[in-house]
Write a protein that binds this DNA or RNA. Structure first.
Length: 876
RNA sequence: GGGGGCGUAGCCCAGUUGGUUAGAGCGCUUGCUUGACAUGCAAGAGGUCGAUAGUUCGAGCCUAUUCGUCCCCACCA
């Protein structure tokens, strides 16, 4: 045996992972003899490195996959990474800026070369980090959203949707990030409320007959105003509809139009209309045939339509325009106002709603079946409440802007004909226009939203669009595990994409987990500097400690806090497992270890087997419900309290005693229970369990492919377990009494037992009581009169205990203590009586419950009598 | 404006379909070199489960209202 005295994960984690890989345990392939179980990884972005959120996400998936694999499923966990179009491009540009180069310096091709190099470096790093966590991914299938296979799927889907009319090109108001210089989808905009102002402006009538006051939060857009709208039922304004206003600063004539979009109650009841810079205004513009004047460039500066403000940055322009409006008397007043400002989710600069020609996916026809599928539970959210969030989004979904003015990503497969203007969209790059045959064609410069390819992930990684054996066998996948923050970005889009292209849901279950926060409950973020690197934690405490601390006690969908203290606790637990195993293995050395079926089971053996059995059931039930937190908690309790604190202690007198047969039998049970516990633990803490398993006698192969324990009805041993617990109760009581009278724990005492039903069990367990409670001898008495001298007594449901302690006994304290006990018993009697006297309870409660109460009442009444007798005795 | 989470011991959290005397961990108190482990062992203290009302024989759990707190969604200029 070469196990070190303390758990030191560094000595074995890497070695074990390499072994697993070499043995091919992670690999899965279609196997007619097995039921598949498939999980696809939420592909981490290649932008950076693993954070705690990934660590949690990985641990949850790995525990599920390992559990299923041990249960005999052909378990596939398909790994991969995401090119993360905009996020990666932003990072690369940042890196280039440090070197003083811009995108334009490199050109598209040069830039892409650099991007691929980035992918190579950071993609590999992520993979390495995932391996450190112990994730049992099938690395033979490592995928990347821009690899050949996924790109083929993207192309296929784009063409299909285009041909179906579900992808179209159009000029609409989109969210524009002037910093990233690209369009964004609605989901990519984050709104924050910021203190700002309402600028109330006065637009005069052309005929000099007065003015209309409008308010705006973005005064610079007034340069592009092409109307003022009022509600057609608003009596204040009806006479003015159709009249002409002079737009200040610009001196353009603009009409007053009536449109029901305007809320009469809000502000002045008149709205300036800027069709090029506001989605609502754009709609109003369409209805009234208004001119669309875009006054801003892609980089956020004002363009030539902005006249003298041309070239100014949008915020400078705002300042100047306000000044000028004030000068010319058009600024009526400034009112403080909290404004909801949209920000780019990648660079966090404020986005501009701007009119732009982009590609869109028509969502309504896709959303409908996606709503149905979840409504009919073909895909089930855990916890269920997230389906509401999903419905809410899907039901109010708007068309998806999928084109991005970036270089890193899947280039849009649309080819424009310079001669006839026709757009050719095809699976293979065309050499000529499909309409006029001209060779004078060029490909769209833009790339697709990164989420367009992630949406296909569950099937593109398995071979779509080809009808592969993998796809046939492993799809649809079983569970998708992800945090709630990408339900819209990813989960929802996978569902409608799969329904459209695969005609089925992409996964049966979605397990939503929360976010990992810091010890104070704050979100971990770079700007706060409160992020904790999982690798550092692994280095210090081991991967198993990290994994266990992340999922022990968590509940689905809820956020969790991470702290070193928790990891320390988990590490201590690992150490506990380690040392308990060391104890077992040490004792096995040089001894024959029989199979559990050959063991002559003692009361203690049956008790631990019943506890093990309960743990198996708890873990299994909770795993099926994706309650990994509860599964872990029940294992923690079983291993630490039942196995270590009690059972191992109970075996010591046997192991250190001289009876070889008993010793051998105890070893058989110990090894069996430990081995089972290790298997139960393995999905959560794979490394330590494997390392110990390899050292345990009677094991061969890897624990990760050994069968998972199953609930065994024959091992419930309810009666025996109850007897054993009665004995344990006696041990606790004796310990307690010693503390109360101030006797040293090592002081041996004589224990007198008065019992009717438990003599046999207590006799069988006398050696345990003697050793664990520090008892010199156990005397069975027929009545309490047999005990002489000053005694401390205690009433248990199973028996009465009398311990002669001579001078240590303080009569007054004893009376007080017994009276305290009596009080408790009395209140229990009162409670039980109240229940049993309640007609409703007796009439309606289940019989077992009523019987239980009756039994308790009898028991407590007996105890009451005994206590009263003892108190009386003391008082004499 | 809509939707949701959370509120249980000093702290951080569990609590499965309503049913024993509401549980862990950390922290705290007291004691212990008990031949696996001081990353330990033993014994303890500590909770009117945010508030109110209701449903029920029975509520931490279900319903309504309410307070506090966090989050998501939404084009009111």
């Amino acid at each position: 045996m070469d196990m070190s005295k303390t758990y030191s994960p560094k000595e074995f984690e890497t070695k074990i992972y390499e072994k697993w890989e070499q043995e091919g345990y992670f690999h899965a392939q279609p196997n007619a003899d097995k039921i598949p179980f498939t999980v696809v990884i939420p592909p981490p972005n290649i932008t950076g490195q693993l954070h705690m959120g990934h660590a949690l996400n990985q641990t949850l998936q790995d525990s599920i996959v390992r559990y299923k694999r041990m249960q005999g499923y052909e378990a596939l966990w398909l790994p991969g990474t995401d090119h993360a179009s905009i996020a990666t491009e932003v990072k690369i540009i940042e890196q280039m800026a440090k070197e003083g180069i811009s995108k334009e310096d490199l050109g598209r091709e040069g830039f892409l070369e650099r991007a691929w190099a980035w992918k190579e470096k950071y993609g590999n790093r992520i993979v390495e980090q995932i391996k450190h966590l112990g994730s049992s991914c099938d690395w033979d299938r490592l995928a990347f959203t821009m690899d050949e296979r996924c790109s083929k799927a993207v192309r296929e889907v784009f063409v299909k949707l285009y041909e179906k009319g579900l992808i179209y090109q159009g000029s609409k108001i989109i969210n524009w990030c002037p910093c990233c210089k690209t369009a964004l989808s609605d989901a990519e905009v984050e709104y924050t409320e910021e203190p700002s102002f309402f600028w109330h402006l006065r637009y005069p009538f052309a005929d000099g007959s007065g003015y209309i006051t409008v308010a705006t939060t973005r005064p610079e857009t007034m340069l592009g105003d092409t109307a003022v709208a009022v509600n057609p039922t608003d009596e204040r304004y009806i006479p003015f509809i159709g009249k002409t206003l002079i737009l200040p600063l610009v001196n353009r004539e603009i009409p007053v139009v009536g449109d029901s979009y305007v809320d009469k109650e809000f502000g002045s009841g008149a709205v300036k209309i800027t069709p090029a810079h506001d989605p609502n205004d754009f709609e109003v513009g369409l209805r009234h045939n208004l001119e669309v004047i875009r006054v801003m460039n892609d980089d956020g500066t004002m363009n030539e339509k902005a006249g003298e403000y041309c070239g100014l940055d949008r915020f400078e322009a705002r300042k100047k325009i306000i000044e000028d409006l004030e000068k010319c008397g058009a600024l009526v007043r400034i009112e403080p106002h909290a404004h909801n400002v949209g920000h780019c989710y990648r660079c966090h600069n404020s986005v501009e709603p701007i009119i732009s020609k982009q590609w869109f996916v028509k969502m309504e026809p896709l959303a409908k079946p996606a709503i149905e599928a979840v409504r009919k539970n073909r895909t089930k959210f855990t916890p269920d409440r997230f389906s509401k969030i999903y419905f809410n989004w899907m039901e109010n979904i708007r068309n998806w802007c999928i084109s991005r003015q970036l270089w890193w990503g899947h280039r849009i497969p649309a080819f424009y004909c310079k001669d006839c203007g026709h757009i050719t969209v095809a699976k293979e790059d065309p050499t000529a226009c499909s309409k006029c045959g001209s060779k004078n064609i060029w490909q769209d410069e833009d790339v697709l939203d990164t989420w367009f390819s992630s949406a296909l992930w569950p099937f593109s990684t398995l071979g779509y669009p080809d009808a592969t054996a993998d796809l046939e066998y492993f799809f649809p996948t079983d569970v998708l595990v992800t945090a709630y923050d990408i339900i819209f970005f990813w989960v929802a889009r996978m569902i409608f994409s799969s329904l459209e292209h695969m005609k089925t849901v992409p996964f049966k279950d979605v397990l939503i987990h929360g976010i990992v926060r810091d010890a104070e409950g704050r979100k971990m973020s770079k700007s706060l500097g409160n992020g904790i690197d999982p690798l550092e934690i692994i280095d210090e405490y081991g991967a198993d400690s990290l994994r266990f601390s992340l999922i022990n006690g968590i509940s689905a969908g809820n956020d969790t806090r991470f702290s070193k203290e928790k990891t320390e606790g988990a590490r201590n637990f690992m150490n506990k497992i380690w040392n308990a195993s060391r104890f077992v293995i040490m004792n096995c050395e040089g001894n024959k270890v029989p199979d559990i079926t050959e063991c002559k089971l003692t009361l203690a053996d049956k008790w631990i087997l019943s506890k093990l059995n309960a743990a198996v059931r708890s873990v299994t039930l909770n795993m099926e419900k994706y309650e990994m937190g509860l599964a872990c908690a029940s294992l923690y309790d079983f291993v630490w309290s039942d196995l270590c604190d009690w059972y191992i202690e109970l075996t010591k007198p046997v192991l250190y005693g001289g009876d070889e047969a008993k010793k051998s039998s105890a070893l058989g049970v110990l090894v069996y229970v430990l081995k089972s516990a290790l298997k139960l633990l393995h999905p959560f803490v794979p490394f330590i369990t494997e390392e110990i398993y390899q050292n345990l006698p009677g094991t061969d192969g890897s624990i990760m492919v050994s069968p998972f324990p199953r609930y065994n009805g024959k091992q419930s041993y309810r009666k025996e377990a109850a007897s054993m617990e009665a004995v344990m109760e006696i041990i606790k009581t004796v310990r307690n009494i010693k503390v109360q009278v101030g006797a040293a724990p090592s002081k041996k005492v004589q224990l007198n037992v008065l019992t009717a039903d438990y003599a046999k069990a207590i006799k069988a367990c006398s050696v345990y009581i003697e050793r664990l409670a520090g008892v010199s001898e156990i005397v069975f008495i027929g009545s309490k009169e047999e005990v002489t001298g000053k005694t401390v007594s205690h009433v248990l449901p199973s028996c009465e205990l009398f311990i002669p302690l001579g001078e240590l006994v303080d009569t007054d304290k004893e009376i007080a203590r017994l009276e305290g006990e009596l009080e408790k018993v009395n209140s229990e009697i009162a409670r039980a009586n109240a229940k049993l006297n309640n007609q409703g309870f007796v009439a309606k409660a289940p019989k077992a419950l009523i019987d239980g109460e009756k039994e308790k009442l009898v028991k407590f009444n007996e105890m009451k009598e005994k206590l009263e007798a003892q108190i009386k005795e003391f008082k004499n």
